[in-house]
Design a protein around this nucleic acid. Structure first.
Length: 632
RNA sequence: GGCUGCGUAGUUCAAUGGAUAGAAUGGAAGUUUCCUAAACUUUAGAUCUAGGUUCGAUUCCUAGCGCGGCUACCA
């Protein structure tokens, strides 16, 4: 029995019995009582005043009285202040809660038979993972784990973007400038090696763009331009002659011209050729593609392994990019889509406040959204889920909105279960990360840095001098990753957040190591008294000190917290909860002796409280994918 | 321009329409014969502006200001 649910139900019955008033459960506002008032939980009465035509004081008095007599002793007192009914819960209830809940898995909900798929990570094979991917990975993993703890069967999936023009860019650069370099020959991690070739391509492209752009500005004829594009360039150039244009407009026109120039460079022509050959299954191109992708995957695996992330199923776009076309036919037949004169296929979403959206090009090839429809269907066929969660940045809100709308209109059975877990960008204190300015924070570098800081701080404190090198390494990893994950998960996913490198390596206050430290302290106490399954004395106390009670009250809320974080798909609720629990425990620990308590009764009680606090901290951190050390 | 998200202590984050807006960090002042001071205690410090709805608004509505994102026959 959760006390919050119980009190709401009891209040509901009271209102019904006293006034014949049928209140919906969510009409009853239940809060924790503010510390300055007497009581544990508070019911807000204002919302009933109008319908019941009574003063809030009177409703409070009568409802309180009713609840007191009908609570089987669970409520021991009440008071009414203004429109607030403060209820005191029996000390026995809290002590019984402690007696009945000592499972290591306290908080975990039984299986509910429902399936949830979580897609996250979604890397490109032309770049190593960066800070943005880390937020994505941690969120995806944690949300999946939260669903698992709420009784869902989960499947974690990853969609790898392993094809397309951008992938060919690194391949071409490797061919031209690589001299046969491999991860082995260069000693470089595969994803970084490939990423460097991508950068090299972009550099070369920039160099080649300059003369082409000059030629365009001069109006020189370029045989690499189609007539259509050449005409557009001419038009742009003429508009630029207008001296009355605003600077902003000039920059915009110049950018357009630059884009034309980029596309007209020899190297871009080469890379388009390469993509064409890839699509025609050219043996040599496929060989390079497979080889370089395998380097990248080895690199990714290393990083995923390090951050403790993995997937049940990985979908490769090279396998799925042709999917979805059949649904275009289906959509046309159902009248969901319509065909334009040039043969392209569209959906009209103006009635939903959006515009017309292309689903099939005039040449009959599919676009991104078409593939996504196909992939969504494929996922559902392989794992008929009740909910399908896409962990994707909020810059794709529009795209995901369209995807869900189309699936709904096509009558796809999974359409209503699609949920875009839209998270905000990670910014630096200086602003947005920009690859062109080299401000992108690399995932591997960041992990190195976090572990290094963990090592330095641990050495400074000198508490684990007896650890073996292996144990030390594991501890640095636990602490470094704990700090990083907690830092990224403690913020509401929907919100854009700032990554401050200096703040992220702080191990004090609202951080992972703070919570980990509390856990280590608890384990230390339990070790000292040899607290084992076999020798735990039964609780005999029947009174609680304020801090003892505060801890139990907080612990009792853990299952409800798990539910809430699941409903909202929000791990930050758990991070906040774990931190607050740890904080309360630290006060308790400072204030009261556990192993050397005043009486044997108090000692036993406090040991039970400490043990369950430890379990909950471990479990809360577990769903955040953070490990806890026995010592630190 | 259209659509959309966000504006809370110096800074980074909280707050299902509910009591005096919470934390952390930084600032100031303290706590170590005793279970791990990566801790604890005390203290100063904030709701972008103007209206509206309500018994009650950081929260809902309208307008304005400021900052993002999206608005490709790219993925």
């Amino acid at each position: 029995m959760q006390i919050g649910v119980y009190l709401k139900e009891l209040a509901q019955k009271a209102l019904q019995d006293l006034y014949g008033f049928e209140a919906m459960p969510d009409q009853i506002t239940l809060n924790e009582t503010k510390p300055e008032f007497e009581g544990d939980y508070t019911i807000v009465l204002f919302q009933f005043v109008k319908q019941l035509r009574k003063s809030p004081e009177e409703i409070g008095r009568q409802t309180g009285e009713w609840m007191l007599t009908n609570s089987d002793g669970n409520i021991t007192a009440f008071n009414v202040i203004k429109g607030f009914l403060n209820l005191s819960v029996a000390e026995d209830f809290w002590i019984n809660f402690l007696k009945q809940n000592n499972s290591e898995h306290f908080g975990k909900w039984p299986a509910n038979g429902k399936k949830v798929m979580v897609e996250y990570s979604s890397p490109n094979t032309n770049k190593p993972l960066h800070l943005g991917h880390l937020r994505n990975n941690f969120l995806g993993w944690s949300v999946a784990e939260i669903f698992a703890w709420n009784g869902f069967e989960i499947r974690k999936t990853c969609v790898v973007n392993d094809r397309g023009i951008h992938i060919c860019k690194s391949m071409l650069a490797w061919q031209k400038f690589g001299n046969g370099a491999t991860p082995e020959s260069s000693g470089q991690k595969g994803d970084h090696l490939v990423g460097d070739f991508y950068v090299q391509f972009e550099n070369e492209l920039r160099l080649q763009t300059v003369p082409v752009l000059d030629a365009l500005m001069n109006g020189d004829a370029l045989n690499s331009l189609s007539d259509e594009v050449a005409a557009k360039a001419t038009a742009l150039r003429e508009r630029l002659n207008d001296t009355s244009l605003a600077d902003e407009k000039v920059a915009e026109l110049k950018d357009e011209l630059k884009e034309i120039a980029r596309n007209a460079t020899p190297i871009m022509q080469e890379v388009r050729q390469m993509l064409l050959r890839w699509e025609q299954h050219d043996e040599e191109v496929l060989r390079i593609w497979k080889m370089m992708n395998s380097w990248v995957y080895a690199g990714f695996d290393e990083t995923y392994n390090r951050i403790g992330s993995n997937f049940d199923t990985t979908y490769y776009e090279s396998d799925t990019y042709l999917l979805g076309k059949e649904y275009v036919e289906e959509g046309l037949a159902k009248g969901v889509f319509f065909k334009k004169e040039d043969g392209s296929v569209w959906i009209d979403l103006t009635a939903d406040g959006l515009d017309e959206k292309l689903v099939l090009r005039k040449d009959g090839t599919s676009v991104y959204i078409t593939q996504d429809i196909g992939l969504a269907k494929k996922k559902y066929q392989e794992f008929p889920m009740d909910q399908s969660i896409y962990v994707i940045g909020d810059e794709q809100n529009y795209h995901m909105h369209v995807l869900q709308l189309i699936c709904k209109k096509l009558g796809m059975p999974f359409a209503d279960g699609i949920h875009h877990l839209s998270y905000g960008m990670v910014d630096l204190p200086t602003g947005r990360m920009k690859s062109r300015e080299g401000t992108v924070v690399d995932a591997d570098d960041l992990c190195d840095e976090m572990e290094k800081v963990a090592a330095t701080k641990t050495e400074e404190l000198g508490k684990v001098k007896d650890f073996t090198p292996d144990e030390l390494q594991r501890l640095y990893h636990t602490l470094g990753m704990g700090a990083l994950k907690f830092y990224l998960l403690r913020v509401d996913p929907k919100k854009r957040m700032v990554f401050n490198p200096e703040e992220s390596i702080d191990f004090h206050g609202f951080t992972g190591p703070f919570v980990q430290y509390t856990y280590a302290r608890i384990q230390s106490v339990l070790r000292k008294v040899n607290w084992q399954q076999a020798n735990k004395p039964v609780i005999a106390s029947n009174t609680l000190l304020p801090l003892e009670k505060a801890l139990i009250v907080q612990m009792e809320q853990f299952p409800a917290m798990l539910q809430a974080s699941c409903a909202e798909m929000n791990p930050s609720l758990i991070a906040n909860y774990a931190f607050n629990l740890a904080k309360t425990f630290n006060s308790f620990y400072t204030e009261h002796s556990i192993a050397n308590a005043e009486t044997e009764e108090a000692k036993v009680l406090r040991l039970h409280i400490s043990e369950l606090t430890g379990h909950i901290i471990r479990n809360a951190m577990h769903v955040l994918a953070i490990q806890v050390p026995e010592r630190m």
